[in-house]
């Protein structure tokens, strides 16, 4: 999937999409920032998540993930992430494994203003 590129953000809060862009049966969009590739999705509580696009396990592309169980699930091994990027389930790991608690993908805060979705681009990634 081609990521939507946000070029040279100059403010910390930068428009990355319209809310209406997520008006689809599967509300998910690839977003490319200067710092890397992300995936924007809406969970079952209606909240937005902007998290790293590659699964931290072996790098599969989460833009093709399964939007289910109030988060995004990697189709490769079923690792499940919530909107903060926290891994909440690793269904192929042994029963009782707590490894998932240590796994988090990068997350960028987002908010909605006037029908736009804004991301809080970290300062180091703003163009001067």
């Amino acid at each position: 999937m081609e990521g939507r590129s946000v070029k040279d953000p100059t403010a910390a809060w930068t428009v990355i999409a319209r809310v209406s862009d997520l008006d689809a049966k599967r509300p998910l969009l690839p977003i490319t920032l200067a710092s890397g590739r992300y995936v924007l999705f809406r969970d079952e509580e209606g909240e937005l998540g902007l998290i790293g696009r590659h699964c931290p396990h072996r790098g599969a592309d989460l833009c093709f993930g399964r939007l289910e169980d109030n988060g995004l699930r990697c189709p490769f091994h079923g690792w499940h992430f919530d909107r903060t990027g926290q891994c909440v389930e690793q269904p192929a790991e042994p029963e009782g494994s707590k490894m998932y608690t240590q796994i988090k993908v990068p997350m960028i805060p987002v908010k909605i203003v006037d029908g736009n979705i804004l991301a809080n681009i970290p300062e180091g990634e703003l163009s001067q």
């Binding site: 590659h54 931290p56 396990h57 072996r58 790098g59 091994h77 690793q90 192929a92 790991e93 042994p94 494994s97 490894m99 796994i103």
Partner: peptide, 12 residues
């Protein structure tokens, strides 16, 4: 694959 970012588990 950027293996500097991977997290291998027991299944690997």
């Amino acid at each position: 694959q950027d293996r500097t970012q991977e997290h291998l588990g027991r299944s690997d």
